[in-house]
Design a protein around this nucleic acid. Sequence first.
DNA 1: TTTT
DNA 2: TTTT
Lengths: 175, 175, 175, 175
Amino acid sequence: MAGSVNKVILVGNLGRDPEVRRLNNGEPVVNLRIATSESWKDKNSGERKEKTEWHSVVIFNENLARVAEQYLKKGSKVYIEGQLQTRKWQDQSGAEKYTTEIVLQRFRGELTILDSRGSGSGGGEYADDEGGGGQISRGGDFGRSSPMERRPAPATSGGGGGGSRYSDLDDDIPF
Amino acid sequence: MAGSVNKVILVGNLGRDPEVRRLNNGEPVVNLRIATSESWKDKNSGERKEKTEWHSVVIFNENLARVAEQYLKKGSKVYIEGQLQTRKWQDQSGAEKYTTEIVLQRFRGELTILDSRGSGSGGGEYADDEGGGGQISRGGDFGRSSPMERRPAPATSGGGGGGSRYSDLDDDIPF
Amino acid sequence: MAGSVNKVILVGNLGRDPEVRRLNNGEPVVNLRIATSESWKDKNSGERKEKTEWHSVVIFNENLARVAEQYLKKGSKVYIEGQLQTRKWQDQSGAEKYTTEIVLQRFRGELTILDSRGSGSGGGEYADDEGGGGQISRGGDFGRSSPMERRPAPATSGGGGGGSRYSDLDDDIPF
Amino acid sequence: MAGSVNKVILVGNLGRDPEVRRLNNGEPVVNLRIATSESWKDKNSGERKEKTEWHSVVIFNENLARVAEQYLKKGSKVYIEGQLQTRKWQDQSGAEKYTTEIVLQRFRGELTILDSRGSGSGGGEYADDEGGGGQISRGGDFGRSSPMERRPAPATSGGGGGGSRYSDLDDDIPF
DNA sequence: TTTT
DNA sequence: TTTT
């Protein structure tokens, strides 16, 4: 459509370990269950209340799926950016169901781990480094190598290029 | 939860006119059906393809509901910011269903009309003015009147305050 | 302007303790210095490189300023949402300078603390609870008390209200 | 840094035609000047006031730069997503200056044209089609061709793939 | 059901 | 310098 945007931003915690499935070509597809929560004080009772919302996230982005598989676990805190997709399916009785998910398509979306290294429920190997960009190519000519990435004018740029995250180019993964 | 974020950003078009319901106190609650769409060229066939996603939006934010009721119609293009909520319900057969919506809670969310005045499918009265902030108070002491809103230091600030959108304070609505 | 959006989202760490100034009425205005950083592997050298970007944040939002003052410190990790503003000023020599800041206006913006309780550089009192919404009223009729906030139709809603964060209504602050 | 996010979202209008520079390899780098604006009613005077904010955008993303060059002009309305970068430079007198820009790095950022076809100040050729994804690869194996992009489980997925925008793969550009 |  |  003429100029549309479909974006979801979540910061929350995994309710369970990532679920990993494999495509025919061996690529991982990862499902996450993420909780966000809000609390407030009830105006009448004065009690503090809390409501948790659960989100289903599906990561087709190959690189981010690999990061999720390796570094996330139950309890991990993440920043996730994806898009809303609703799909229709039928349960065993044939009843129509709809499920809405936050999807990180191939080469799209973002995933950033917000835990400190070794935190999370159980310690662990995963990075406290930084999050993963899905905006990134597997192509042969990845931008960060270019000395011209920053704007030369109008003066001393201080150089320095962009930076990336969990790039598909980083064959020996990111940390 | 410790530090969570649940945010949806959509730019899309209304598939039909807004549906307005009334709460007991007369406040409007507005439901929108918004389409976002992506197109791409199929790598194999070379054809251009398109996929449309439909989103259900519920506006409890009183002020934004009023704007939606008055200014939006089928075909209108909007920027919407809300949060994801999934609710469970039962159809007439008693089957469990889940519906995920983008919700603009009271005093929360954003709605900005992106159509030019008089455009949309059918011309019309509604504003192409500017968007609606749900971040805004009905209280008595609204910020924009304060000459101190901008930071005085470290030098001449140039003064000037924020700006608002569809404020609850604007009793005679916004344009 | 007809439908504009000006939004900045940062997740990063404070480079120093918050700076607090007071308006004439005693309200705090808080300045934060926040670092975001990206790392990538240089394609030529194979080295891992990192670039840090520093951001100046100004919190006029009364409630969030209070939260920042009380709970943030050097090293704290936060989610911040505000808007870009550039202001012109003159240094002591009279030279024109421009400074671009992320501003959280009154009743606007968001601040969510992402540290675990007691973490950060030095332990501390601040919440690991959840972040602060600037979208929230000081008015007398705050939404979360309403039993009608959720949509009644089309079936059993499961009730449940919104949730808030660091509300101006919570006179005895939020945790 | 461990898990940081640096994101700017703008919806606004171009104050002038795009400025295009060329890198040594011929790739375009485009600078945009974008206005966002807010209006509000002054509580004391009752007057409607408006404040415009001007943003400097730099597009290194090769594909989006090409779209900007071809389809944007003074007055165009766009959705832009990039990151904040501040660079230091010296004016002719040797005085230090800082400029903060919204940067769309290579393979990153988004640009979506929000004008209707032929609208804008002067009619024109550019697309009102759909927005540009910077998240997209020039690699040989672009996702949309994959029949497995959607999740197979837990039931009939309905297939259907993602969608893209202004892909680097679309050699014969996008509309 | 929108939009191109 | 845009837009309403």
